[in-house]
Computed example of a mutant assay.
Amino acid sequence: MTLSKQEDFQNKGVLKLSNVVDVEMLADVQTHLWQEVHRKFDIHLDKPSTWFSNVNNPIGDARAKRLNGMGSIMRELKAAGKLDDIERAIQPVIDQIFVDHTWRPLDLWYSLLSFPGSESVWNVPHKSWHCDEPAVVGDAKPWSLFVFVFLDNVTADMGATTVISGSHRRAERLAKTLGTSNNEELINAFSSVNSGLYESPKDVTLLPMDQVLDPLIQEDPWFQKLIQEGSPDQRIQRFIEEGNSLHGIEQKVVTLTGTAGDIIVFDPRCLHTFSANVSNLPRQVLRLDFRRQI
């Protein structure tokens, strides 16, 4: 049986869609983005010697380096209308697939631009796994959809975001036994995407983001190994190629890779982290979030 794209997304929490955005449109955005990076940081895309020689505040660790201050650049591009055509290309695709609800883009775009770190061999990451939204009992849909937009070809060795497909369903299952109510403060913290979804927020039972990983580690040897160091060959074989199944839920580590014009729709309740950029190229990806409407 062939699953629909929406059913596939519901099972995995990750959906790749090819050739959604015109590459010429992306090239124009890419040009403006690098002009602003040059202006603000004195960094040239084609001159690796400038990538960090003039920057005092990169963020990240040995795996990859990102720049503080990209938020202001993205806000300026949005205000100048440089991102409008991309939004208009993505919106009908979201409408066609996710027909159960109406989804609308937020005003804020994110740059996931990252530069090579100090590691030389790519491996499945073992740390910094986290979720970006809680799992709500009785609500199978996320509050928002993260849409990753590839400005250029991105391969795993360029520090791709790394996701555990199916982990949002594991979180939903845990929420039924470990979830608590009286989470108004947490719900209010996400008001930009969940406002109006619940008549009585104080009665909503949910599992906070920081309470997902530990129970999975306790009940599942696969997750126990995930957070331990190991050789690249063994970890790629176990977590990406083989995966695992428990409670009827299949899970695998998936790298968010693609070519210019592709998008990936991602459920923020899935566990994810960033990986090492061991290439000699920056990872050029943007992210736009869509809010679920009432």
Rank of each mutant, 00 (worst) to 15 (best):
L174I: 02
D85H: 13
L226K: 01
E76M: 10
L216E: 01
R173M: 10
V253C: 03
S49G: 10
D46G: 09
R292L: 06
M25K: 04
G117P: 00
V37S: 07
D28L: 08
V285Q: 04
V29P: 03
V285D: 03
L108I: 15
L186F: 15
S181K: 15
W143Y: 15
L197R: 15
W51L: 02
I73S: 04
R169L: 13
N280C: 08
V21R: 02
E242K: 15
V147C: 09
R287I: 11
K141P: 06
E199W: 09
E133Q: 11
K40Y: 07
L286E: 04
V37R: 04
Q234T: 08
T259Y: 09
R173T: 07
P282G: 05
D8M: 05
S181N: 14
N19H: 12
D61K: 11
V204K: 06
K47S: 07
G71N: 00
L174V: 05
L281C: 01
I236F: 12
E185G: 09
P105K: 06
F148V: 03
F274H: 07
L108T: 15
K16H: 12
D28G: 06
Q211S: 03
F223T: 02
F41T: 02
W34K: 00
K16N: 11
I94S: 00
A189M: 11
W109P: 06
P221M: 13
N56H: 14
V21P: 03
G179W: 00
A175N: 14
D100A: 10
S49Q: 15
N19A: 12
L45I: 14
I294D: 07
P48M: 00
W103H: 04
E36L: 06
H168E: 04
L15W: 02
F150T: 01
D85W: 02
T177Q: 13
F115N: 00
F239Y: 06
L226W: 02
I94F: 00
K82T: 10
